[in-house]
Design a protein around this nucleic acid. Structure first.
Length: 519
RNA sequence: GAGCCCGUAGCUCAGCGGUAGAGCAUUCGCCUUUUAAGCGAGGGGCCCUGGGUUCGAAUCCCAGCGGGCUCACCA
């Protein structure tokens, strides 16, 4: 911790959140470790929202580290004992999965055969994403925790307060649902399904309840040792106590649920984390992003066109505001990242207000890419090519200074991203125009002249030739000539300096391109 | 019905007590050689309305109007 900085006045939200934690734990003298939790439901592939939650929670954790010397832990908790409620629309083995409705996710096979269960596959996808960002986290499987008995003590407490807890939930439910509601969901020994059935308390001391199975037979079961799962709002509250959770974020859709779980926790160990609700991501039209609709962006899609840092920056900005998440966000975020990185000053005070500090957990990279991403996209568009070497060499012509190894690597990296962006979003919209009869004539004369030259031409020589023939066609207004060439060659009104481009392409390729145009 | 978010340039948004900002769009000027991947110059705003706090409000508070999302099945 740097004592010179007054963190208390920081406007950066991770510090504001960290101070809320500090304020609370000052009262708990025994506190040895601060636990941050993020939840994940592995019923489908990880959502970008889940990812955002981990990223943002980690930013708070990092801010806390800066102001308070204390151990902390980031828990990624997977609700893999939850029952499968419906088959995700994009899942390839629809029919096979349909047979497993109401089964715990961790008990469903993975039909690709690569993982031990359906939940395991999705859990691993999440871990892969988190590992890409080098998060330091502890992954916890709900199934393992229930089965190991780690939750037993808290489960018995829930049973002990069965009536009190039920009374909190029941008023929030509709009549039909009230009849069948129970905080405990027995896992059927015969079928393996998670049952939503009314239960009777048999013995609070021994932790035994009973329910009627599908054949109307009265079955007794322990609530402990993985025989029962808690209904989720109770489950959430139980987890706070069992895992001693100090901080947890949630989407605004869970605000009412959080309030209920908070009440429930009074009957367990009364542990309620500091909480920050965040706004949900919207798509281009302002609608909620959902996997089934396929709108908005997935993590993979972002990573195809932007760096992980640009994604992290997007997640950092204004978590309490609903933000539209679509393709246009990527170049903007890429440019803002560079701007923030270039604006970095060494003053501590300003450093912690800069998103870059939070994105990189306080360890600032020594350099970033040497050109703005949007400029690079313009270049790729102007060159109308996906050839990364040509683009790279043109960049070097333009930058005119030596690049460090890091900068070279960064440049190569974002050129690939820019090419992807160009191919998917710009190329389909470009329309090259046919040259007029006169233009064809002039271009073919240009071709002849280039052919005449024995050696390779320099960029100046190419440029001179272009001027020479342009003057024949547009003696008063050479500008028209260039606009025409750009339209014919690239489908846009602006373009690169043609002499330089031809020089990079070399004679053979230049001739090929020009001949193609006048066919 | 309840909760949350948002109303700032034509569009998308940033700013969140101290002279109204960016990108894109638009208008004008610029191609025989310091980078047209553009460059230079301009136009465009009762910062939703009304009240309050303040020396001072786009910014904070209250009320309203408008837009949107979420929850009230499941998680």
């Amino acid at each position: 911790m740097n004592t010179k900085i007054n963190y208390r006045n920081s406007k950066a939200w991770p510090f504001i959140e960290a101070h809320k934690i500090l304020k609370k734990i000052y009262k708990e003298k025994e506190k040895k470790i601060i636990n941050f939790e993020t939840g994940y439901g592995p019923s489908g592939i990880p959502h970008i929202g889940t990812f955002a939650e981990v990223l943002r929670t980690n930013m708070v954790r990092n801010a806390l580290k800066e102001i308070y010397d204390c151990k902390s832990k980031l828990i990624a908790f997977s609700d893999d004992l939850d029952a499968l409620k419906k088959v995700p629309e994009d899942y390839p083995f629809q029919d096979k999965l349909l047979k497993y409705i109401n089964f715990p996710l961790s008990s469903i096979p993975d039909f690709t055969g690569k993982y031990s269960s359906y939940a395991e596959k999705n859990n691993n996808l999440l871990k892969e994403f988190l590992n890409q960002f080098n998060f330091d986290y502890e992954f916890i499987s709900s199934t393992k925790k229930y089965n190991s008995g780690d939750f037993d003590q808290c489960l018995l407490k829930v049973l002990e307060n069965y009536e009190n807890i039920s009374n909190i939930i029941l008023p929030t439910l509709r009549k039909e649902r009230r009849a069948s509601y129970s905080p405990f969901l027995p896992i059927c020994k015969e079928t393996g399904k998670v049952l939503e059935v009314p239960i009777k308390v048999v013995s609070k001391e021994d932790g035994i309840i009973s329910y009627k199975d599908q054949n109307n037979k009265e079955i007794e079961t322990l609530v402990t040792k993985g025989n029962c799962k808690l209904q989720w709002k109770v489950d959430w509250a139980m987890r706070w106590s069992a895992l001693d959770i100090d901080y947890e974020m949630n989407g605004k859709d869970l605000i009412p649920s959080f309030e209920l779980s908070k009440q429930i926790s009074r009957f367990i160990n009364n542990k309620v984390p500091i909480n920050m609700p965040y706004e949900l991501f919207l798509d281009q039209n302002g609608e909620k992003i959902s996997k089934s609709k396929g709108n908005g962006l997935s993590i993979e899609e972002w990573m195809k066109y932007g760096t992980k840092e640009s994604l992290a920056l997007f997640m950092y900005q204004n978590p309490r505001r609903a933000k539209r998440l679509y393709f246009d966000c990527i170049p903007k975020s890429m440019d803002e990242y560079k701007k923030n990185r270039d604006n970095l000053v060494n003053k501590d005070r300003e450093l912690i207000e800069n998103p870059i500090w939070h994105i990189h957990e306080g360890i600032i990279p020594s350099s970033t890419y040497p050109v703005e991403f949007s400029t690079l996209i313009n270049l790729v568009t102007a060159l109308n090519t996906s050839d990364t070497n040509t683009i790279y060499n043109f960049c070097l012509l333009y930058i005119k200074k030596d690049l460090s190894q890091d900068e070279q690597n960064n440049l190569k990296l974002i050129i690939n991203l820019a090419v992807n962006y160009f191919q998917n979003f710009i190329l389909p919209k470009l329309k090259k125009r046919e040259p007029t009869k006169k233009e064809k004539e002039v271009i073919s004369n240009l071709i002849i002249e280039i052919k005449k030259s024995k050696a390779e031409l320099s960029s100046e020589e190419y440029q001179n030739l272009i001027y020479k023939y342009g003057k024949l066609l547009y003696p008063e207004n050479l500008r028209e000539w260039f606009i025409s060439l750009y339209q014919i060659l690239f489908g846009s009104e602006n373009g690169p300096r043609l002499g330089s481009l031809f020089y990079l392409y070399k004679k053979e390729k230049v001739l090929k391109i020009l001949e193609e145009v006048i066919k």
